[in-house]
Amino acid sequence: MGQKSINRLSGVAVALFGAAMLLWIIPAHTETVSYGWVKPDTLPKACAWALAGLGLIQALLPKGEVALDGGEFVIVAVAAVLSAGAIWALGKIGFLVAAPVFAALLIAVIRERRIGWIAATIIGAPALIWVVVDLLLGRPLP
């Protein structure tokens, strides 16, 4: 896909988002009030109209640079999914178990093999955080 069509695509996405805000999200998630100059939906509506309009312009006259990189995107997606899992695990099983596992998975993604550095990351970093935050500052971790 060329740069032009990627730009066109992002313009269409922005315009659709603006339209979705106007048609569904804003009416469903703001309350109606009977008085005042700036109502709860005044600024959101103005922004949504602007997004719809600007998105259309971008779709029609695609301009600007893009830095889309498929390979990078896949690894970033993996890291994001792992992070989401880590947030879930932090709530379920706590920091002291979840953090080292999360660190270990990230290390696996990077493919680090040196055992010393691996140990430093999966044991050292969580332990340091735990000591500083939980013991020294007295703030509980999940």
């Binding site: 992070s83 880590a86 947030i87 932090l90 709530g91 920091f95 953090a99 999360f102 660190a103 990230l106 290390i107 990077i110 493919r111 680090e112 040196r114 550095w117 430093a120 990351t121 050292g124 970093a125 969580p126 955080i129 935050v133 703030r139 971790l141 999940p142």
Partner: peptide, 25 residues
């Protein structure tokens, strides 16, 4: 330290820092 150490550790710090300053997961 190599990047393989710095970035996972930095990510953990971001998690903990934001957890503390926003008061929850």
């Amino acid at each position: 330290a190599p990047e393989s150490v710095i970035f996972p550790a930095a990510l953990l710090f971001c998690f903990v820092g934001v957890y503390l300053s926003t008061g929850g997961l």
